[in-house]
Write a protein that binds this DNA or RNA. Structure first.
Lengths: 204, 204
DNA sequence: TTTAAAGTAGTAATCAATTACTATCTGACT
DNA sequence: AGTCAGATAGTAATTGATTACTACTTTAAA
């Protein structure tokens, strides 16, 4: 039934497994407190063996953030692709983001943690770059929506972007208080409805 | 000119100074990476001396979270007190919260950090208790606003509460990306305007 | 049999916490 | 007023545990 799971993995696959282990662990603890020993234990490896595949811990975090930026942006952009209406595209983007977070609860924690790190690490730069790209994508949609008259012409694009990110953070916060990610998927559309009312054109 | 500043402080004042030092440090680094050595250094004290006033590090965090819960709730409730309109009260609450965060950038980081801690610490319980109280206060205002017809009668109160917290988190996130807290106060009212549109009764 | 991948067993640095000791403040008694 | 005894608050050095990281040896798969 189970795969045979060889003890020795090829280097690249071992690196992938390491990244997944970190993301997994970040779902149950503060990312900054994850030790190399904990990572190794979680993937049934000795601690020292990790350093055969990564030069140092910083490189592990760099790989993790790279994975996050890649996967999250791909998912989000794929969800919005092909949707004509900017507003519908924003909703699809939002729901895809929430689904990703529900699958990987550690991701928003890692992003928040990296952003507030004191030192300028490669991982922090990756996180900043991703969020900058994300914000640009969002602003383009908002500008398009305003141009088309779908969104209010007097809409504050900057505030709309901040609140979009805030929706996600608010839902994450809520799930942290609740202690699980169960409700996040069902709460998300209800929060977006509120958001939509704040940005769409036309009263009523 | 300067106060003489006695080297030896009375125990209670020393504990207060310690709490302030931690909140200060949390503004420039990940709260979970703050060491007792860093705390002591920041307040011109030797590391061991801290343990003359606190039994252990956990007790320091408990004192810090207690300070946060006290001050934040007091500020927020005082701001909303005496305002008849629930919607106006919510705005006052929000602006007071943002002002507090601008003064103490470490506070939202500590709250977020405590909530995602793996272990059930006294500090984590204090954070959860504060947010529960906060949510209750918010829900009461929302219910009142709906009853008075100030807010939409079909408003989703839960979603409105989540988005309220999300506004704050979104602004904090934005300030983390920007690298400073400078813009948070001026961005806040613009975000609240968006929020208001999502919850008020009547179209147009 | 070859070799990439893992285990074993360390290192120095840093962590929270404790120790033995010293400095400083305070109030009671001459 | 002066002073000195007890209490309080501090320093400096050190603890064992834990951290990221490394040197050397063993194993397993092709």
């Amino acid at each position: 039934m189970n795969a045979p799971r060889p003890r020795n993995l090829p280097a690249e696959e071992r690196r992938n497994v390491t990244v997944e282990a970190v993301i997994d662990l970040a779902g149950t603890m503060n990312p900054d407190t994850i030790t190399t020993a904990a990572i190794a234990k979680h993937m049934n490896l000795t601690q020292g063996a990790l350093f055969r595949h990564f030069p140092n811990k910083e490189a592990i975090w760099k790989a993790v953030m790279s994975w996050v930026a890649d996967r999250l942006m791909t998912r989000v952009e794929k969800a919005a692709a092909g949707i004509d209406s900017p507003l519908e595209a924003m909703q699809a983007m939002f729901m895809a983001h929430i689904a990703f977070v529900a699958e990987h609860p550690g991701v928003p924690r890692m992003l928040f943690g990296e952003l507030q790190a004191a030192k300028e690490t490669p991982a922090k730069r990756l996180a900043q770059a991703m969020l900058t790209k994300y914000a640009a994508r969002l602003n383009a949609l908002i500008a398009d929506g305003m141009a088309r008259g779908e969104l209010r012409e007097d809409l504050d694009a900057g505030a709309a972007g901040t609140l979009f990110i805030g929706m996600i953070q608010g839902l994450v916060m809520q799930s942290l208080i609740a202690g699980d990610m169960c409700n996040i998927a069902s709460d998300a559309p209800r929060v977006f409805d509120l958001y939509r009312r704040g940005i769409v054109a036309g009263g009523a």
